[in-house]
């Protein structure tokens, strides 16, 4: 196991290095000159040259890459070419905002999805099961940004009981920060909740048919006891890898919902920095995104192998599954 983990960590490091090259190259392939964004398209060429010089855009690309990599590895993420603020500060506060939204969304998805899945499984075939199935179908079909729009129309415009968006910091205005998260959390969390409900139902049904359950019932243990002890444990272990992937995609994929609710998160920072060709910010964010994905895949794989020892050998052979 240790060897497997170490091997994967080494592999991740190499992949991340490769990712930094890819990210750097892709960004430079994009048309658009940050010096012109800064100085304006109609600035004189002497001015533009001066700005380019200051931004270090005159160095050959490999030199620029190596300089950036060296600074990056030593923890110096540089400054935004537009605002001049430290990248660590910009990226840090954006990621914190997105992480908070990811947390509330995951909580909502678990808090709604797991009970619904349990209900559906325990009352399999009844109207409750079908109702949950219906909910799942609808929730998985409703685009989150549209739901967000409708929630805003209803709760922020018509009833004015919830903010349509927000930028309050948790540390300064906890109440404001949390209230501004309510609508985006609902909009973002509904589909994952349905996904978890489906998974939970499937896992529970599977376990209920496992022989040990029948044995347990035969031994006279109460159904409630069996549920508490074995079933939930099994379900949660089953859900954990999925949750890891869910968290990963929420962290990196909330750009559109952040735009709808004007949340200053990582997704919006990406959109904004791309518009301004703010290389330093983009490079850092994208490398972090790739790292997040590598990490959740890794965690999911480890969890799978803990769950099912048979997987471990398979994982070691194939170098990871998805």
């Amino acid at each position: 196991m240790t060897r497997f983990v170490l091997g994967r960590v080494a592999q991740m490091a190499v992949t991340l290095l490769g990712a930094s090259v890819v990210v750097f190259t892709v960004l430079r392939l994009m048309p658009g000159d940050p010096a012109l964004v800064y100085a304006g398209p109609f600035a004189g060429s002497d001015v533009v040259e001066a700005v380019r010089d200051r931004m270090g855009l005159h160095d050959p690309l490999p030199v620029q890459y190596l300089l950036w990599l060296k600074a990056f590895v030593t923890g110096d993420l540089g400054v935004s070419s537009i605002s001049g603020l430290p990248v660590s500060q910009l990226v840090g506060s954006a990621l914190a905002q997105t992480a908070l939204l990811t947390l509330t969304t995951s909580l909502l998805a678990i808090g709604v999805g797991v009970p619904l899945g349990l209900l559906a499984a325990l009352r399999k075939g009844t109207w409750a099961d079908r109702l949950v199935a219906g909910f799942n179908t609808v929730a998985l079909g409703v685009p989150n940004f549209w739901l967000g729009l409708i929630l805003v129309i209803v709760f922020a415009i018509n009833f004015s009981i919830l903010p349509a968006g927000g930028s309050a910091k948790l540390t300064e205005d906890p109440l404001g920060a949390l209230t501004s998260l309510v609508l985006p959390t609902i909009a973002l969390g509904l589909a994952p909740a349905a996904m978890l409900a489906r998974l939970t139902r499937g896992a529970v049904i599977e376990v209920m048919h496992e022989d040990f359950m029948t044995m347990a019932a035969a031994k006279g243990m109460s159904i409630g006891f069996v549920i508490r002890r074995s079933l939930l444990r099994h379900v949660f272990l089953n859900l954990l890898p999925v949750l890891a992937i869910l968290v990963g995609s929420l962290l990196t994929g909330a750009a559109i919902i952040e735009s709808v609710f004007t949340l200053p998160g990582a997704g919006r920072l990406i959109i904004e920095s791309t518009r301004q060709r703010d290389y330093a910010v983009l490079q850092t964010l994208l490398v972090i995104f790739v790292a997040v994905f590598l990490l959740v895949t890794f965690v999911a794989d480890i969890l799978y192998s803990v769950l099912d020892p048979r997987v471990r050998g398979h994982l070691m052979r194939e170098g990871g599954v998805r």
Binding site: L107, G111, P115, I161, L162, P163, L178, V182
Partner: peptide, 27 residues
């Protein structure tokens, strides 16, 4: 485990009720 679940649900309920207190400032 179930207790955890209940706690989670409670936390969510609190989260959902927060706006009621927050809306006082408006206008």
């Amino acid at each position: 485990m179930k207790r955890h679940l209940i706690r989670l649900c409670l936390a969510l309920a609190v989260l959902l009720l927060l706006p009621a207190c927050g809306s006082g400032g408006g206008g």
